[in-house]
Write a protein that binds this DNA or RNA. Structure first.
Length: 586
RNA sequence: GGUCCCGUAGCUCAACUGGAUAGAGCAGCUGACUUCUAAUCAGCAGGUUGCAGGUUCGAGUCCUGCCGGGAUCACCA
């Protein structure tokens, strides 16, 4: 049970009893919260209902608070209740409420923290979606980790989640890719290709692709005309590129459920494709022929004033209407994007999350507009922007030379510092804040390094069990035995402090999922690790607080039950982030 | 010029979506180590939350206008 949720319900019940007119006013009732007070001296739980409902009830907050407090008279789990400040109701709970967190965590195990009821509706999380023209680099990594952790977080909270990758395989860059691969193919057949011409991809990763083409086709590609050759090469190269992307993602532990190919939107008739979508938009009166004004910063010479096919994006909150058809008659990228959002909507996703890089900030409004337009306002499109990652070495910018075509790939990054570090560091920051990634700092095993700090706390928890097995081998610490522990022994203030942090896990998780903010999970496990380390050190000053007590088996068992719960919560939190929880650190 | 993001302790960042006296870590002082119960912990010090207004019981958070930093700005993807 989550004490915060339980007491919120309890307050709501009492409010409806006291003020029957609230029973059909869900909106008002949904506005108050029960949360931990900032200052621990205010108690365990704080409720703002009296202030929030003051207007609705046309009564002053103090009077409402008084009536709520009176209604809690006799509640066996309330040790103290008082009104403070402008009308906060502060609860201090009896220790057994917090002690029960241990039993819950140990009993529910990997499910501890999971909300009881599943939210309605399917959620599509689209992330990475990098152009399949080369290896993933560090710029893709943050979005990849963020999207993956967000999907895991929401899946943990029982949302029906699909992890999706949109393959941009319909544009001109794939033609360039095919031509680049053809050059490597010629090279594989023994031709001297010299310098890679400007405009083609120079990367060495295409060399094996060229070899594969040579093995598959012999010299047949050379005798084809350009169109036939491209049509032949394209799917083969694309597949190779996507294999590479998938392999890179796997190094970070990322696996998508669905790879959606943009080119399928350009084909015909499978529902939700571009033509059908544009026809549908036309029926809605959202498409017209017109001209756009030149942006203020552009000089008239840079601007070709021309009539084009436009989507009324402004009607849905965008800043300008958007072109759907290019001057050569083909569809714009955005036209495909609208169709893609419609496709997702038709597949039943009323909630669509799109994770993009910092350079796509300008897309938030237009994607939101697309989502609203194609769903008649039913689908929510939440665009999450991940800001830039600054790579540092020893505090100095780790410059990458763009000229030589060298860049830090995702694979390099993971190889150098490991999956856990990459993932945790990238999640230990709000997504919209820029991130410094210092190679030297993130590999240190010190307090400065949050990944290490949290993993160390988990390893310590495990070591408590190793020590117990060594020092009191006759003590049964099996799950069943831990279940029988007398948790009421854990009433020392230091223990209650730790237990209260533990008890916040469920609401922290749920709030993070609702807000689409996985970084909160990272901050939570960091806080729990701190609370655990603090308690651990207390055992130094006060030996009776040590986990293993040679004289007293019952307190040892209770303490180990608590340690096991800490370990479980850390595992659950880290599991959501995709970071391992090692039993020992080397 | 438009739009979006950011601006919080010397530094790097939080603040549970409007709650109470704005919190952590680093750096600086003080103290605690037979290194898996110090890879850590406790304490001290550090603030006009960029500026000015507004909304209300209450603002770092919401609205307006400025200042500073970054990103982006038809037809590429």
């Amino acid at each position: 049970m989550d004490a915060f949720a339980v007491f919120r319900n309890r307050v709501e019940e009492k409010l409806i009893n006291l003020y029957p007119e609230l029973s059909d006013n869900k909106a008002a009732l949904s506005r108050f919260v029960v949360e931990p007070p900032r200052d621990a001296s205010h108690g365990d739980l704080s409720c703002n209902a009296a202030m929030v409902l003051s207007k609705t009830l046309k009564s002053n907050p103090r009077a409402i608070a008084d009536s709520i407090v009176a209604a809690f008279e006799g509640d066996p789990q309330v040790a103290n209740i008082e009104i403070a400040g402008p009308g906060f109701i502060n609860f201090t709970l009896t220790p057994d409420v917090w002690q029960s967190v241990i039993a819950d965590a140990n009993e529910q195990g990997a499910d501890y923290g999971r909300p009881a009821v599943a939210p309605v509706g399917k959620v599509n999380v689209e992330y990475v979606s990098a152009n399949p023209t080369g290896p993933l680099h560090v710029g893709h990594t943050r979005g990849a980790v963020f999207g993956d952790a967000l999907a895991s977080l929401m899946a943990f909270c029982r949302y029906e989640i699909t992890r999706e990758y949109y393959i941009n395989d319909a544009g001109g860059q794939i033609t360039v890719l095919a031509n680049s691969a053809y050059l490597r193919y010629c090279q594989a057949l023994g031709d001297d290709i010299g310098e890679i011409p400007a405009g083609l991809y120079p990367g060495k990763y295409l060399i094996p692709v060229g070899k594969a083409l040579a093995e598959q086709f012999g010299d047949k590609l050379k005798s084809m005309d350009d169109a036939e050759r491209e049509a032949t090469i394209r799917p083969v190269v694309l597949e190779k590129m996507m294999d590479m992307v998938r392999a890179d993602l796997e190094k970070l532990g990322i696996k998508h459920d669905k790879f959606f190919s943009e080119s399928t939107l350009h084909g015909g008739g499978n529902g939700g494709d571009i033509k059908e979508t544009l026809d549908w938009l036309r029926e809605q009166g959202l498409v017209y022929q017109g001209t756009l004004e030149a942006p203020k910063g552009k000089t008239p010479e840079e601007w070709e004033d021309r009539e084009q096919t436009l989507f009324k994006a402004t009607q849905f909150g965008d800043d300008t209407d958007r072109a759907l058809v290019k001057s050569d008659g083909s569809y714009t990228y955005f036209a495909a994007d609208i169709a893609y959002h419609r496709n997702k909507y038709l597949r039943g996703y009323n909630s669509q999350i799109v994770v993009l890089g910092a350079d796509h900030a300008g897309y938030i409004k237009r994607l939101g507009a697309a989502g609203k337009a194609v769903s008649g306002g039913e689908a929510e499109v939440d665009v999450k922007i991940c800001q830039l990652v600054n790579l540092l070495r020893n505090g100095q910018p780790a410059k990458m030379s763009k000229r030589s075509g060298n860049f830090v790939t995702m694979a390099n990054l993971v190889e150098e510092v490991g999956q856990d570090v990459v993932r945790f560091i990238m999640l230990f920051r709000r997504n919209e804040a820029p991130l410094d990634f210092d190679f030297d700092l993130v590999t240190q095993q010190t307090r400065d390094n949050p990944v290490f700090y949290v993993q160390y706390a988990h390893a310590r928890a495990c070591s408590a069990f190793r020590n117990a097995a060594r020092d009191v081998p006759e003590l049964d610490v099996s799950p069943d035995s831990l279940k029988s522990a007398d948790l009421s022994l854990l009433s020392h203030p230091a223990e209650l402090t730790l237990l209260k942090v533990m008890g916040q896990f469920p609401r922290a998780i749920e709030a993070a999922a609702v807000a689409h903010e996985p970084h909160r999970v990272a901050f939570y496990v960091h806080e729990l690790a701190g609370a655990f380390n603090a308690f651990w050190t207390k055992g130094k000053e006060e030996p009776q607080l040590r986990f293993v007590n040679h004289e007293d088996r019952t307190i040892t068992l209770a303490r180990l039950a608590m340690v096991n719960a800490v370990r479980q919560i850390l595992r659950n939190g880290l599991g959501i982030l995709g970071v391992s929880a090692p039993d020992e650190l080397s």
